[in-house]
């Protein structure tokens, strides 16, 4: 059932970055869902309960930014591992939901991959 445990949702409005991350995780054997805004992300999460990892950007268009999405996910899907990224500023840890990891943009995609895989295992 390894395929099922390695499912990730990537929420990122910058398409180049999103495509790159999707390609990276797919090539590493992950099942990848992607969304370019929070509403879309929540819809995917509702349909696919097996998503264990969410990687989200903070700045996004729409009614909900990445940080609100992360809080929402922490409440709605508590076991989910959360990785939050932003190019804007170093967020205060108070702003982050529990058990969330912050990654300032740009980040090393391979280190991110290793870290996420370590978390899941």
């Amino acid at each position: 059932m390894e395929v099922v445990t390695k499912t990730i949702l990537i929420v990122e409005d910058e398409a180049f970055v999103r495509f790159d991350l999707v390609d990276l995780f797919e090539q590493s054997g992950w099942r990848v869902f992607d969304a370019d805004n929070a509403d879309h992300a929540i819809a995917i999460l509702d349909r696919h309960k097996d998503i264990r990892v969410v990687l989200t950007d903070v700045q996004m268009p729409g009614s909900m930014d990445g940080l609100k999405l992360a809080h929402y996910i922490r409440n709605r899907f508590p076991p989910t591992a959360l990785f939050i990224t932003s190019g804007n500023k170093r967020l205060r840890s108070d702003d982050l939901p529990e058990r969330a990891t912050f990654l300032p943009k740009p980040f090393d995609h391979y280190r991110l991959l290793n870290r996420i895989e370590a978390t899941v295992n």
Partner: peptide, 20 residues
Amino acid sequence: EELAHRLKNVLAVVQSVAQQ
């Protein structure tokens, strides 16, 4: 702040374009 954000965004895009 905005400029820093945009710059980092461009770097992220460059990073992705380069990787792909």
